[in-house]
Structures are given as structure tokens and as C-alpha cells.
Simulated assay, not measured.
Amino acid sequence: MGGSALLRALRHRGLLYNGQRWMSGLGRDGEEIQTMLEEAYTDRGEEEKERPRLDRRSLTESTVLLFPGQGSQELGMAGGLLKYPNVREMFLTANKVLGYDLLDLCLRGPIDMLNKTVYCQPAIFVTCVAATEKLTQENPTLKYLCIVALYAVKVRAEAMQKASDAVPSGMLSVVGKWQTKYSTACAEAQDHCLNLGIKDPVCEVANYLFPNCRVIAGHMEAIQFLQDNSRKYNFSRTKLLPVSGAFHTRLMEPAVEPLAEALKGLTFMKPLVNVYCNVDGRRYKQGPAIAPLLTKQLVSPVRWEQIMHAIYERRRGKDVPRTYELGPGQQMGAILKACNLKAWRSYRQVDVFKEEDTEVA
């Protein structure tokens, strides 16, 4: 991905580079990346100096992009994207930012390493960004993200991994029934932990996925208690997620300061397209409010069900936008189907896995 392309991606996403502090830990590779950004910043021959104006389109002409998160990772992801322009270069640039071969990890693992937060978050991020390259080839109206955001993801992943290593914890996907009392289940799981001698136990809803489905996170003893007593709490199905910590709970508080410090080197502008916040389920409206919400997201539940309603809710008879899921798996599509069947009928998943005619070596 060339320097001018990086700058265009930054500006279209409402994110601008501001200062050099976040490059300080990257050594020689950091100097190279810094040079790329400086060249991009001064290269204005291919673009207007003012922020571009977007055409107002009808709902039938609009597009929704859904990006999966941690827990969707699988070996082989990104293998089906390598034949598209710029994808290999994206991974080579990511290697310089991260300090390891990200593409090899995505394709060959080992899976235990890929499942670790410190590796998983950058892997999913870059794979999702690369998937937009495939989508632009088939529908050339969309562009991709940049290395500045990847560095923020790197800092976030490292901080969350450190917080996860400090306390044995996990996340449990729970499908309940109309009579399920999630607050009661979490409270009794916390009492169980207290009886085991665990001080200040955590067990709380970390993600509102779709009607009657939650992700509960906390101390591993609490998670195990809920699994063992699923019938008592009217859980029809439970599944332990392949993640290494209790994300979006107060167990992630140690990760807040490192991420906030990394974000100080960035200036956020008002997004040119609607981008929804996981903390409150609403659109980001002002650039300065974005960074505080990104840090708050670490310790706040994800309001995904609310976001789905906010995006697709409209008057009867109105068409819904096209929806693409970019990344490994079809989890976002399954959630969309449970939230809004009409919107799901206009959904398509952009496959990121190896196709028979794709060379990955």
C-alpha cells in the first residue's frame, strides 16, 4: 500500500497522523513507516486538499460493512485474498509494524498462538482490511484502512493480553430463553467465586449479540459455574469462546491507560460515513469524542444488538441497504439474521479463505 493511498485511507476514515511518539518503539522499521507517512502527507498531487464530499444516496444504493472480532479467527484466513492487488503488501507492511510474519501465522498457525489476544487482534484486523480489497475488485466503490490504525490495534492487543494473563478469565456465549435472568446468574456466579476465596470477582454481560443471546465474561471460575448450572438458569446453549480473557469488563482496566496513551498521538476527525460505537450503539458524531469511547470500549459491554437495530430500523416498506461481512467466518451474518431477517436477505459474506486456484506460498 503506497504512501498516498495510506493518507487517503486515513482521511476517508476520519483519522490523521499527529506526532511521532507512537513510532518510538518500532526502531528501524518505525523510521521506514514514518518516512512513508511523511511522503504521503506531502503528496497531494493525486487528491484534493479539502475533505471529499460524499454523494447522498438512497438506502437501496447504500452499503453496510460488518467486521467480525476476536473469536472468529481460523487457520487459513486471508489465503483467499492473496491474488488481489495490494494484499501481500498490506501483510508485508504489517510485519514491519508488528515484528513478526503475520501472514504465516494466519495461514499456518499454530492455532494456540493465533488464539492469543496479542496476535489474534492484529490478524483479524489486517484480514478484514484485506477483505475490503477483494470487495473493491468486485464492487469498486470502497477503500481500505491503514498502518496507523494497525499500530493502535497492536498496542491494544498487547495491553489486553497482559491484563488477561494477570487473571484467569474467559468469555461464555449464552443463548437463553424469555425467562432467563442474566443478572441473577452473574450475581450467583460471583457469590460462588467469593466462596472460593476470590476477591472482587467479576462476572457480567460483555456483549449483547441478538435477542436472548449474550456473552458473559469474568473470572474463569464464574464462567465454569455458569456452564455447570446452565439448566438452572434456563440457558438453552452455552459455548466457551476461543479468547484469552474477559474482554469488555473491568478486568481489562489495566489496558485502558496504554491504549489512551497510544491514541494521544492521533487526531480523529468526524467520519465521512456512519460508524457506530460499541459502547452506546450510536454513531460517532464528533472526532474528539472517538478516542475516549475507544478506551471506554475496553471495559464496557458491546451493544451489538442495539447497533443492528440502529442501522437497519426504518419505516415499513422502505428498502434495506446491502450488507457485506468482511473477515473470517459468518458470525456477523448469523447475528444479523437473528436481529433482522429482511436485512439478512441482502447480506453477503466476502470469503477470506483459500480458493482452489489461489497460491498462498
Rank of each mutant, 00 (worst) to 15 (best):
P68F: 00
T141Y: 15
A40P: 04
K162L: 12
L259C: 07
H12L: 15
V205W: 03
L194C: 09
K239I: 11
I223W: 01
G79F: 06
G176Y: 10
L6E: 14
C106T: 05
R322V: 07
G287Q: 01
L54D: 10
Y312K: 00
I290C: 05
R8T: 13
L37C: 07
V202K: 03
C339N: 02
I290M: 02
T127L: 05
N95M: 10
A334K: 11
A343R: 03
Q331K: 09
K83P: 08
L135I: 03
G14L: 10
R315H: 13
M1L: 12
A217T: 00
F247W: 04
V320A: 13
K49D: 15
K154M: 08
E32V: 13
K154C: 08
P328A: 04
E221F: 00
N115Q: 04
C193W: 03
L54M: 14
L81G: 12
D43K: 04
N139M: 15
V215W: 02
Y119P: 05
G197K: 08
R315W: 06
K354C: 11
R314V: 13
M113Q: 09
K143V: 14
V97T: 08
K270S: 12
I124M: 03
A334L: 07
Q70A: 02
E31I: 09
N195D: 07
G71V: 00
K162V: 09
A5Q: 15
R303A: 11
E188K: 07
E356P: 04
R44K: 11
N18R: 15
Q73M: 03
G265N: 12
P68Q: 06
K337C: 05
N18E: 12
